[in-house]
Nucleic acid binder design. Sequence first.
DNA 1: GATGAGCGC
Length: 290
Amino acid sequence: MAHQGEPAKLRWGELEEDDGEDLDFLLPPRQVIGPDENGIKKVIEYKFDEDGNKVKITTTTRTRKLANARLSKRAIERRSWPKFGDAVHEDVGARLTMVSTEEILLERPKPLGAKTEEPKNAGDPLAQFQKGAVLMVCRTCGKKGDHWTSRCPYKDLAPPSEGFIDKPAAADAGAAAAGATKGAYVPPGMRAGAERTTGSDMRRRNDENSVRVTNLSEDTREPDLLELFRPFGPVSRVYVAIDQKTGMSRGFGFVNFVNREDAQRAIGKLNGYGYDNLILRVEWATPRAN
DNA sequence: GATGAGCGC
């Protein structure tokens, strides 16, 4: 850009200020020269600056013909590709990119609990994510990685957790699951590992094998606990203490296992386990005072 | 640091 006469520097806010007078008709017309064989095009314009001086503005541009010479052959070739997606219906000229509004469906990874069978007695239930020294699992996508639940890319796609229904365990449900459709609701008494007691022998509540879990993050909920503890064996109850006043988690909860050995294994594995950016404490619970 | 809701027959 070349200036002639007073090269007055226009400041912001003064660009179009002309005191209401439009004296542009006094200026020479705009001239366009070129483009020449090198693709150079010149545009000469005249303007009044803030002091009323006439200013000549020469703009030199390089047309695509030359610009292309600086592009790779591949890039030039891409320009001739047919448009696709939203660009088909829109005149985007030579633009190579545009914002698309096309829906892209992301495949959601299987939740932690969606293993084909209860890995009871199947070695280490945490082996699937026990590679690093520190174990952290995102509660939303179930992946060990560099993000937590709040930053999980699938956070907004996640449907509500599947809750408490204990699916019939294919391996050991035996007669209880016979004839039952896969994934169908199974009444508590018929669930895998449930006590086969009847009538007067049936206890009201099973508070056996109660494991206390503390240092839970405030947004850990019961389905999350179930998901975390279920790989160790059938879980009869999960509970997260909620502050009645605020509705927020009090940061601890309980998990009851049907089998004491499973509870013991869960304690052994999950105590000190990194979950949702906190280190869990998992211990035997002292029986509830009543 | 921390130990749960509900109970009506």
